[in-house]
Nucleic acid binder design. Structure first.
Length: 406
DNA sequence: TCTGGGGTCCTTTTCCTT
DNA sequence: TCTGAAGGAAAAGGACCC
């Protein structure tokens, strides 16, 4: 049997992406909303309370459509996490402000984001994949890479039969559909899975590069976002073919050695990144955008309470996940949307709320508090597992004194 | 005018030490 | 004691992703 580890040309990597994941989960729960404009996002409280007060989580499928909260009822800040296709007809899309969306489609149903529910389905579909192979890289709640290289039959049809089997098993387990792309590496597999959504299966080989990848806009490359895309467009490079036509030297001159070479390789479909079947978190953080901009002096008590709560939440998250960290930082976003961060690396590892708060407070003192704030965040990095940390440090899980000075 | 939250990764800047 | 170079680590910022 050929071993793909020694034969890069035999690599078959699948990228699997759930179709409109959050919206699809919500429609399983509320089938009466099928076909209606529905947006998911905003603050949890409004819609949650609205439904739970009246129905308490029972017989959700029986809730009359007329009883669902609407965009027009929403007051406050927030953005749309995702929108159903019916809502997109109104020009509503991800990351749009809710107030703006409400102006365009006031009657759209507004549902809160329910991560606990999405995680439940996430575990179900990943379990189906792991039943086929342990060679899976977790890429978040609704997508994964899978190394099919050594599975029986993959080299007979490029992986199509395995992709069909995955789709079938996942649908049976969850009632949800997904799209699958199979290609020689992660970069191409990711692009392949987006070629034919929803419920698509796209099988790519190196020979398909010019016909199926090169006509796509540069932004379809995972890692090229709006900023990079605009810069490329400014140089007259719009499609991946345009990018591929440039010499490595030309790209390196304009984008630096590392990035230039990466662009060149990506445009030529080259990517040798291995699958990462196990990953450790790099940082754990909590942040919150206030319902209204808060003044550092006039709203001091409110800010202090929020700050204390964020520290306590991060500490709880660390303890629950079994980590301690020694770099503690804060993030502030001013009313003009400018953000600043400060952090400090200490001697000891900790997951203690009071210790986090004390260090974070020092960080906070290093930034100018001369205008209103819209966001505050607390972050811990330089993490290690609690049982492998280099030395014993601060006590864990102490209760936090409330409402100290900021 | 509007712009969430939780992350990763990369580059640049700043600081410290020799 | 001052100054500058060099290198590394830490800090800061930004782009990107889900």
């Amino acid at each position: 049997m050929p071993d793909s580890k020694d034969r890069p040309d035999l690599r078959r990597i699948a990228h699997l992406d759930m179709d409109a994941f959050y919206a699809s989960v919500e429609l399983l729960r509320y089938p009466q909303l099928q076909g209606l404009p529905v947006v998911i996002g905003g603050a949890r409280r409004s819609a949650d309370e609205h439904l739970s007060q009246r129905y308490g989580g029972n017989a959700l499928a029986d809730i009359p459509v007329a009883d669902f909260p609407r965009l027009r009822d929403y007051i406050g800040r927030g953005v749309i996490t995702t929108a159903t296709y019916a809502a997109r007809q109104f020009g509503i899309g991800s990351a749009m402000g809710l107030m703006k969306a409400a102006a365009q489609c006031p009657d759209a149903v507004l549902l809160p984001v329910d991560f606990a529910e999405y995680r439940k389905y996430s575990r179900l579909f990943k379990a189906e994949i792991l039943a086929l192979t342990p060679r899976m890289e977790d890429r978040g709640i609704d997508e994964v890479y899978i190394d099919l290289s050594d599975l029986a039959g993959v080299h007979d049809d490029g992986g199509r039969e395995l992709a069909v089997r995955l789709q079938t098993n996942i649908f049976a387990a969850t009632g949800l559909t997904c799209s699958v792309g199979v290609a020689p590496n992660k970069l191409l597999a990711k692009m392949a899975s987006e070629l034919d959504k929803p419920r698509g299966i796209s099988i790519l080989t190196a020979a398909d590069l010019e016909t199926r990848i090169w006509p796509l806009p540069c932004q379809k490359i995972h890692g090229i976002g709006p900023k990079m895309s605009a810069k490329l467009a400014g140089l007259g490079l719009h499609s991946i073919a345009d990018l591929a036509a440039q010499s490595p030297a030309w790209l390196m001159q304009r984008f630096g050695a590392t990035h230039g070479l990466w662009l060149y390789d990506a445009a030529h479909g080259r990517d040798e990144r291995p699958l990462q079947t196990a990953t450790e978190p790099v940082s754990i953080s909590r942040e919150t955008t206030f319902a209204r901009d808060l003044h550092p002096v006039q709203d001091k008590a409110e800010l202090r309470a929020i700050f204390t709560r964020l520290c306590a939440q991060v500490a709880t998250d660390l303890q629950r996940k079994g980590y301690v960290g020694r770099t503690i930082g804060i993030k502030v976003r001013y009313d003009n949307f400018k953000s600043v961060t400060r952090d400090h690396t200490g001697e000891d590892y900790t997951a203690d709320a009071a210790t986090l708060r004390a260090t974070a407070r020092h960080c906070l003192r290093r930034i100018p508090l001369d205008r209103r704030l819209r966001l505050l965040g607390v972050r811990v990095s330089s993490l290690c597992k609690i049982d492998t940390r280099p030395q014993a440090s601060s006590p864990l899980g102490r209760t936090l004194p409330l409402f100290e000075d900021l």
